[in-house]
Nucleic acid binder design. Structure first.
Lengths: 138, 138
DNA sequence: GTTCAACATACTTGAACGGTAGGTAATATT
DNA sequence: AATATTACCTACCGTTCAAGTATGTTGAAC
């Protein structure tokens, strides 16, 4: 599996925040209920979105999260890379992995690289707004 | 990770067999040495390629494997689906998984479906011969 | 100062990956 | 016939990761 629940949940939370956008802060409890996602699990994913300016968080009563960017300026690719770490379809392409001994003349490596580029530019061509407007035809 | 060593090794073994193609059978030992792949591990991957007509196997002394199809008739997509089981980039798309409760109006599902199609047709547009001729530009 | 919410840390459970070990079946050579 | 060689089969193993729980601590509003 290339894209885990981390990235998928993050997208759904951001969309949910956008759809219920007010000047108020929205408690994650509400989002989790609507999206049927474990609250405690998604709680651990949110800080990375806060630190990168996608949302602001407010502690305490009346607190919660508020979307800080307009949905049409949020690239799905950026959000996924942030939450997933990498979108590489094979471990050969991850810098964390030890270098493959066959890398120099591996006949398949160019194919993985090309796919990796395809995947990244696919996600970079889609914004949160596109998803909300169901502009993507599966 | 979407594509594990199973599929990647299978491709490399088939290419290796094609590159050393003779009328003889080639012992997997030789391929494993050249490709620096664990013999015992790849041994377990081969039978699915035998059963699907990609290679014929001969037991005993002088035995081994022989490629049965021409490299330009072997689609990378077929080989990967055979060895990996599925190329689905998210678990939502796997029929083995329980159905997602939000599936009906999930705003992200069409995107995953579109990506899935993209990935499958990408691999279906590449043959073993293309890989051997390094026709893919990463 | 109590309540509510974000944030932090540790732990758990299950599955998968990537392999190893040992044995059996089939074929060729001697 | 015996032996060597090779594919094939089954079981096991160690590590990592996904996904989620549990239990707090910090910060803000009332």
């Amino acid at each position: 599996m290339m894209i885990s629940t981390r990235g998928r949940y993050a997208l759904r939370v951001l969309i949910d925040l956008a759809e219920h956008n007010t000047t108020d802060y929205i408690p994650l409890r509400d989002v989790a209920d609507r999206q049927q996602i474990s609250l405690k699990y998604i709680e651990r994913i949110m800080p990375v979105l806060t630190k990168n300016g996608y949302v602001t968080a407010l502690h305490g009563k009346g607190g919660g999260y508020r979307l800080e960017k307009s949905p049409d300026s949020c690239l799905v690719g950026d959000i996924l890379r942030l939450t997933e770490g990498t979108l590489a379809p094979v471990s050969c392409l991850e810098c964390s992995q030890p270098v493959c001994p066959m890398q120099q003349n591996c006949p398949t490596l160019p194919m993985w690289k090309k796919l990796d580029k395809m995947i990244n530019s696919f996600f970079d061509s889609i914004t949160l707004k596109d998803l909300m407007q169901k502009k993507i035809d599966g």
